[in-house]
Design a protein around this nucleic acid. Structure first.
Lengths: 337, 337
DNA sequence: CCGCATTATGACACCGGTGTCAGGGTTGAA
DNA sequence: TTCAACCCTGACACCGGTGTCATAATGCGG
């Protein structure tokens, strides 16, 4: 298979390579006849431009990076799916880069990543979306970035989120309407901005329905299944035991369900359990978890699409969108007895 | 931040850029004094070579692609983790590319991927690892590739697998030793080579322990949770009902568990359930699933490492390794009553 | 038909590295 | 002392595109 370069196309079509380049990039000032001719040669020779050469000339890599430090595999794959969709539409590549939020080496890690891969932009996923140190660093280096599921909005960046507070409010209200008054809550990881948002929604629902907030019903988790087990233990030991538990994500909710089942609780008859995220596990277990579904793929896709647009034309406007989350009721919640 | 190129380093160090290049690539024929001097300037100027320029010059991209068409998110993330580890050690990037095995456009899809991203190599994950059409295509195009978890070994390629047949044998034997004789089996997706391997292991264990194979106890699944539900339905409807079910992966096993629980079976007292893969869900549900753990990350890491070595020196030897799988017993299997 | 603005095209440098090759310096054996 | 062999080093072309600018061709009003 002979390599087809812009030179072969040019000589074959009888034009200069600059003209070929013009056709490639849909630039104006090419006569229709010439354009047609070149396009035909593209087909005939089955020409594909070399992105590396193009990258070198334009000082771009056509790669955007996605960084994460998230225990939920399913969340990550959903993020990736959305990001990939946007990348493929725009002939970009996606580089995935798991890294440690806590490490003091984070900034230098990211700096090295940017240096060595010459990324055109970065997608920040939770918990990085609201990690000020990092955002400030990127801003100072003028690295384009987009934030997914951030709580704090900034008026000069790209940010696509879903309404965590509202989602938490709705699911809590759902429990209240089923007659629950003692509703335990398991918080997420303190570094995730969603943690506070969901907690806020929980409290708003309580207060709106005149239920007094009880601090003893709140446990600190960190979104991991394991932390859910610990929190569940404390909650199920409470006397009197709450009639419902709302965990900040489905893994922790699944942990509550597991422990409750082990302890011979009947779910949802003895205790209702609700989660958040609509992770696969929510429907893979019995009883299925009532939860909140967020459009993770869609959020990420929009964020990445805007990011790529922004790379192309840096004067582009900021983009701030909040998508709706949706309550999904399954068997794990029921009328209080 | 001024851009630091090989030219700035060269003039700063008072040598030619070719010499700088020699130091960069650890080439011989550079005097120690010169090497030291250049290395010092690297530090001083904080120089990072531009991978794009290097790629253009060497006609390489330093990117390897990982293609998959796999319903198990957790499997994919594990593959990615392993692949990333190998890539980072070797300053490579990983491009992930989900695609449809069934689509007739597969080959042209992959061809386009290779063309447009100039990948240096490809990692094939199940079910692509044993997809002959694709392997032949890559071979004919002389694209370096490595296969993860393939069943069929070829003596001229890189292939790292785990022993599916042996794993299935062991878990079946585990059930037999618990006194089970009527052990149902749920097959995986027919396109995955693991499907046949696991089935073979199941049959070998039966025959080795003098249990007659009963075709009615075998259901066709496809590794998805949903297919597990369908298979579970058929199995639980059998009269007499088998005392154990061995599903070819944990998702399907979880589906059996869910349906069994819904139907008021007590697991493992009324029926034992075993899975395969040690997916997170296996320990997230109650009772936890007895299963087989495979070193997926390690397999992929080895495969990718060898692949990168092979790209560097194409005359490299083939590499064929089989890693061991390991039985993990949890609460879902017990002595038959 | 002329002068000028506008469009179409190509020559050439450039992006930041690597490959080739030639030349100067040093070493060691004859 | 001489000459081949070897080690260092740099000049220069090249990878495959894009940016700049000059120039040729065309359109158009006067």
């Amino acid at each position: 298979m002979k390599k087809v370069t812009i030179n072969s196309v040019a000589s074959y079509a009888g034009v200069s390579k600059k003209t070929v380049s013009r056709v490639l990039n849909n630039e104006p000032n090419v006569s229709d006849a010439t354009r047609e001719k070149v396009l035909k040669v593209f087909k005939e020779l089955d020409y594909t431009p070399n992105p590396i050469a193009r990258g070198l000339a334009q000082n771009r890599s056509f790669i955007i990076g996605c960084i994460y430090d998230n225990p939920s595999k399913s969340y990550i794959t959903r993020v990736q799916t959305g990001a990939l969709a946007a990348c493929q539409e725009n002939k970009y590549n996606l580089l995935i880069h798991p890294c440690d939020l806590r490490g003091d080496a984070l900034i230098s890690n990211i700096e090295h990543l940017l240096q060595s891969s010459r990324l055109d932009g970065l997608v920040l996923t939770p918990p990085f979306s609201d990690f000020k140190v990092l955002v400030d660093f990127l801003k100072s280096k003028k690295i384009p970035y987009a934030r997914v599921a951030s709580a704090v909005l900034e008026d000069d960046s790209i940010s696509v989120r879903s309404n965590d507070e509202q989602g938490a409010f709705e699911i809590t209200e759902h429990l209240i309407k089923l007659g629950h008054k003692a509703i335990a809550f398991i918080k997420g990881h303190p570094d995730h901005s969603a943690t506070e948002q969901r907690f806020k929604g929980y409290r708003r629902a309580l207060s709106m329905h005149g239920i007094e907030f009880n601090e003893r019903l709140v446990e600190e988790g960190n979104f991991s299944y394991h932390s859910g087990v610990d929190s569940a233990r404390s909650i199920l030991d409470l006397i009197p035991c709450p009639t419902a538990v709302f965990a900040s994500n489905d893994y922790m909710a699944a942990a509550v369900l597991k422990l409750a089942t082990q302890r011979q609780f009947k779910v949802p008859d003895d205790i209702s359990i609700a989660g958040f995220d609509n992770a696969p596990i929510a429907r893979h277990i019995w009883p299925g978890l009532t939860t909140i579904a967020q459009p993770v793929e869609e959020m990420t896709k929009q964020a990445v699409t805007k990011l790529i647009e922004h790379i192309g034309e840096p004067q582009e406007q900021p983009y701030q969108v909040t998508l709706e989350a949706r309550l999904i009721t399954r068997e794990s919640t029921a009328q209080v007895r």
